[in-house]
Amino acid sequence: MEHIMTITHPYQWLTVVWWLLIGFFLMLYIILDGSDLGAGIFSLFDSNSNERGAIMASMAGTWDANETWLVVAGGSIFGTFPLAYGSLFHYLMIPLMVTLWGIIVRAVSLEFHHHAKRSTKLWDWGFGIGSLVTAFSAGVCLGATMQGFSLSSGPVPTFNGGAMDFLTPFSFWTGVTAVIAAALAGGVYLRARFDRDTVIYRKAMVWTDRMFYLALIAIMGTVVWTFFKFPWAMSKWIGPYWWAFILTGAIVVFAAWEMRRASRQQRDMAAMLWLGLIVVLNFGAMMATLYPWFVPGTLTIYDAANPSNSLTAFALAMTGFVPVMLAYNFYQAWVFRARLAEFSAYGH
């Protein structure tokens, strides 16, 4: 791995910038699609077919863009950290495969539901189960990445472990946590999308109340488990910057409390923003804990990075697009921002 280090040396800052940017894409994905996935999980517990249809219709104009952030993150990892892409994805074969199946089922259910008449039930379930599976297996991927994996030696080290290496109690737990967190986000999202006098709004209110506590327990559990399981995390959290982590933790608790208050007072947009802040803080803390690892104990971001000239090319070619991409996505979301009272599916 020596040569890769020397090649990238002068470009270390670019590596860091791209790592942050990919983290940003992933975070956007978690925030945006997390709500959509959570709404899907919610729909599993809502047996009214009209309401399920309404939930799907509420994301008709935006789900594709939200999901595409995952593709952007994946593509950018391939572009900027090919050594991680080639080994990490191979290691994650099974959970990624299951995630993809979930995404496929969910995407077609969203599209086909509009056109179906007799088969709407099938697509309702497809949407719900697809969402659940996607959230769970994506959570497993995250936990499995934190565990690291075994690499071969040689100039370009590749994954040389077994297909089931990813599965441990910890990665299973992160999958569960992801489902609960998404479920909370989904409830908050639905409340912001529907008129206050709709049935969905009421159901989502009860739902967010319950999910709030579940999510609190799940996230606490993950933090504690991470602390005791991973030396790299423990050493960071009790290292010289311990106060920053404590501070972040404190702000998260405060934001959670504010979210709860906003939610109780039916300030739904505010609740959504507080939840967003919580994700941002958690994700930021996770990135800070990880640094300089891309995959803890396995690849640092410098090992995994693209050789210098490619990274520069990628940066020059792409950084200008990021704000533009954000701008038109924001515009699209803005057009579809209003609350829904009544609406229609493409019937017939």
């Binding site: 863009a65 391939f78 080639g86 994805f89 490619s310």
Partner: peptide, 22 residues
Amino acid sequence: SQAAGPFFGNILGYETITAFMY
């Protein structure tokens, strides 16, 4: 993917950013 990443991965990365997201 690892070997060809410096070129091939970049190109697919360009695609996701300039085309899919667009």
